[in-house]
Design a protein around this nucleic acid. Structure first.
Length: 424
RNA sequence: GGAGAGAUGGCCGAGUGGUCGAAGGCGCUCCCCUGCUAAGGGAGUAUAGGCACAAAAAGCUUAUCGAGGGUUCGAAUCCCUCUCUCUCCGCCA
């Protein structure tokens, strides 16, 4: 959520940035927000004056009662009846207008960084980095969903029987490979100074609102209605919510956390080849990295996180590219996002495996995650997160890219984690 | 799931209708003092909103004692609802 004070003081700049995201009606929404904000302040001013007078009178009555002047006290009471009525009205108005402001503010996406490329579709994303050679596969190569059957690695039908489509059952060496990847990712993250966290994989409503999944993306989460809990779509939700309503010390920054969790996404409405095999699932595993930083440091940190994720992909020997997302392809909450895509050699397409974003104060404003700066002033921190990494597409690319007539080769770095170097 | 107790500032803890944004202690910050250490003295120490101001500081003001509602001129204190924590019983990896 954008800060009201920022809209009030830098409206032109906010509008300029929102234009990068192709956000329609920006001006009319912001004007409406400002108008209602002016109303709000007027109402509050009036209300405060009335409350101040009422408080004054209450004090007076107390003193009169104490000195036994009951009759005088009764006289003063008459005025308070009037004040109370007015106070009630103003409180209701205030609540109403505050609610309206909030309803409008949640419609407005984060303001992108000025370096975000203009554009509307994924084609407009800017390739900022590319690494590795696309492998030339031996004739007879097949996509991963055939490999998983051939080597008995994943049973998609069995998953359908137990839960439904999008819930695969991993077996044998594939199960082990996934466990290896999780451990590899967590080891690298902790070595880089991230504190490992094992959070709950369900969250309550407050947490859903805190990171912005609620109210608008409610349909994308699995909802346990009996207890009103949501299955997390990413570890970002529970981990970032650790810092909800928290005032950190400047010395605590940056906060660096990493967490492995299963992730659950309903992804209603998707179908076709994009969702074939491991490309898109309802349940998948992911290691996430989260940082809370000083506002001056967040872009530096974003680059550092991007480098870190690129390093993982290099170690896995996967060809990849890094995209700087254009305004139209960025998420609602992000100010700047890099996507990492690996080359899937048999499908002959790029698969997104990581998304690293700086949210600036967009999340922390809603979360009320602040820190005390050197002057003792509290201000909002910046939040960032990234996948490091999401497993299924990594597995898909590893299987496809490393297939040989002899079997599927495991990258060196994973061999100690897997305990084998080939799947055959 | 059943029975009981409780929720107050960074922490501990007092406070059962007005003098309470809240005693006292601990912690923290700054200053003073003692050659060092230990001890001692003083001051400060929540968050959010509004007013005013060129702006900052100071100032004035409103709200907040788990959350929401109610009673009252006046609520941390009384009443209702909810949430959470603890103890005992039951169930259980």
């Amino acid at each position: 959520m954008l800060q009201l004070i920022n809209i009030r003081e830098n409206k032109e700049d906010v509008l300029k940035r929102l234009a990068i995201k192709n956000f329609k009606d920006a001006e009319s929404i912001l004007n409406s927000v400002l108008e209602k904000d002016a109303q709000r302040r007027a109402i509050q001013g009036e209300g405060d004056n009335i409350k101040a007078e009422a408080n004054q009178i209450a004090k007076q009555i107390g003193e009169l009662m104490k000195s036994g002047k009951k009759e005088e006290a009764e006289k003063v009471k008459i005025r308070t009846t009037e004040l109370k009525q007015k106070e009630k009205e103003l409180d209701e108005q205030l609540k109403l207008v505050e609610d309206e402001i909030h309803q409008l503010l949640v419609l407005v996406p984060n303001t992108p960084n000025l370096t975000v490329p203009l554009g509307k579709t994924p084609e407009d994303n800017e390739v900022v980095f590319e690494h590795g050679e696309k492998p030339k596969l031996a004739p007879g190569f097949v996509p991963h969903w055939d490999l998983t059957t051939k080597y008995n690695l994943i049973d998609f039908e069995l998953g359908v029987k137990i839960a439904g489509a999008g819930f695969p059952v991993y077996k044998g060496k594939c199960a082990r490979l996934q466990r290896a990847l999780i451990n590899f990712f967590l080891d690298r993250a902790t070595a880089k100074g991230y504190l490992e966290i094992q959070p709950p994989i369900v969250v309550n409503e407050d947490s859903g609102y805190g990171t912005g999944q609620l109210p608008d993306k409610e349909g994308q989460m699995y909802h346990c209605t009996v207890d009103n809990l949501y299955l997390i779509p990413t570890a970002e939700v529970p981990v970032t919510n650790i810092y909800r309503d928290v005032i950190l010390k400047e010395a605590d920054l940056p906060v660096k956390n990493t967490a492995y969790t299963p992730c659950f996404r309903r992804e209603a409405g998707s179908y076709g080849k994009d969702v074939r095999g491991l490309n898109r699932l309802h349940q998948f595993d992911k290691v996430e990295i989260v940082q809370i930083t000083h506002p001056d440091k967040s872009y530096e940190t974003l680059e550092e996180m991007r480098e870190y994720v690129a390093g993982l992909l290099k170690e896995l020997e996967l060809p990849f590219r890094t995209l700087k997302l254009c305004g139209g392809d960025m998420s609602f909450a992000s100010a700047l996002t890099y996507d990492m895509e690996v080359w899937s050699a048999a499908q002959e397409r790029w698969l997104e495996v990581s998304s690293v974003s700086n949210f600036e104060t967009f999340q922390t404003n809603r979360l009320k995650c602040r820190f005390k700066d050197a002057n003792g002033k509290t201000q909002l921190a910046h939040s960032l997160n990234g996948s490091a990494l999401a497993l299924p597409r990594i597995v898909a690319a590893l299987l496809e890219n490393n297939q040989t007539p002899e079997g599927i080769k495991i990258p060196k770095v994973l061999v100690p984690y897997c305990g084998f170097d080939i799947i055959n």
